[in-house]
Design a binder for these strands. Sequence first.
DNA 1: TTGGATTAATCATTCGATTGATTCATTCGC
DNA 2: GCGAATGAATCAATCGAATGATTAATCCAA
Lengths: 229, 229
Amino acid sequence: MTPPVLPQDTRTRLLESAILHFAAKGFDGTGIREIAKSANANSALVAYHFCGKEGLYQEVLKAIFARKPCAVAELAEIPPAGTPGARKAALRGFQDYIRAFFQELMSSTGSEDPVGEAAMILMAREMQSPRAASVPLLMEQIKPYVTNLTNCLQVLRPDLDEEALFSMGVSIQGQIIHFRNSLGIIRLIRGNPAYPEDIERVVQHHIDFSLRGLGVPEAFPQPRIQPCS
Amino acid sequence: MTPPVLPQDTRTRLLESAILHFAAKGFDGTGIREIAKSANANSALVAYHFCGKEGLYQEVLKAIFARKPCAVAELAEIPPAGTPGARKAALRGFQDYIRAFFQELMSSTGSEDPVGEAAMILMAREMQSPRAASVPLLMEQIKPYVTNLTNCLQVLRPDLDEEALFSMGVSIQGQIIHFRNSLGIIRLIRGNPAYPEDIERVVQHHIDFSLRGLGVPEAFPQPRIQPCS
DNA sequence: TTGGATTAATCATTCGATTGATTCATTCGC
DNA sequence: GCGAATGAATCAATCGAATGATTAATCCAA
């Protein structure tokens, strides 16, 4: 709980300590004295630097977003539907998207970066039941993911209406997010605290599952095709 | 927050009030006075009936599980692989499973049963970051779902190894659970607080998406319309 | 009358916030 | 160039409110 927090200015130390504690015990379960102690700082500095506990929490969320500029937003643009080669580009873009999104969620898992790990836990909880003050921040952060994925889906399944496409997107994102959020219980079920040992295999599973689920014909050539007449 | 809690004995009133408050503000964010007040009871009765706040919380979890015996466990048995007709039965069982699981998660959404709705929220949070004392309880509850789904998957994809089947199961469950857990944010993104207006359509989407993602040949043709079933 | 159920009152802690004093580097007056 | 003044940063101490728990008295049906 109290890794040797050596460097940095007090404000940053408070922020990182807050990430760890908020992730471990939630907003209400964490006291500012607790946070300050781990940061080798005085609890009054929470009010001084962040205008109180709630302000600190909001700054924590902003810091988490700032720490890792979303990898997905930097993927190649998808040519608009109808453009020659658009479909092949979208197929490639879709695979890149899932891989990037998955690795972004899993990046700090099992690594030697406890703050990054805690940040992900904190984010997951905030998405599920957001503090009222942080809803706008969350929405703004989610947006690039939604639009990027939607762009791919529109090209890959131009026949679907808007609501069907939306459901596809939710399912695709959902399986990945759930995998990350429930990793704790999943490991208990598997009886293997180190699961997944082979991350690349899991990534490939999510890509395959999503492409097939989406109904992309290119992904169909599968073992034993037999029309059901 | 305080619907007219008229009937029942004090113990039950405390339990239901606790479900509402714990779901709304979490364990640490909720005070026993708050709970007792909504239940028209004295806060000291929490210690008397439940041996304190933590005891009340554990009883709340048990009460939630007891309230709704899992619908999925009561589905028809799947004949073992190899048995004639096993595949068709598994296909049907799989569809029934997803429908039952989805409706179980969504049963209290938008209904006039705020306690059931709160129970679902509370469960979701507990699954994601379980209180240490409740891990055994959760594992026991999850078990029938895992085994039931696994049985179907083994018959439908006998060519896959154990880890691949497990990934399939996690993805299938995950999309549904995520849909339920993130319904709040999903509605914000959609800009429609009443989403989904047509639940049956969403159920059908999850069935189709899962069958295709799983790679069941019967679900392949006509990715644009309904599965041939 | 007995015993479980319920009550108001109080317990010691802990909470987030605030205060006023102190430290220290920078800047300004001269 | 040097002492005084400035203002941000940090500190120990304390505030009132709220926490979970406990107690002793009271209520009431059996």
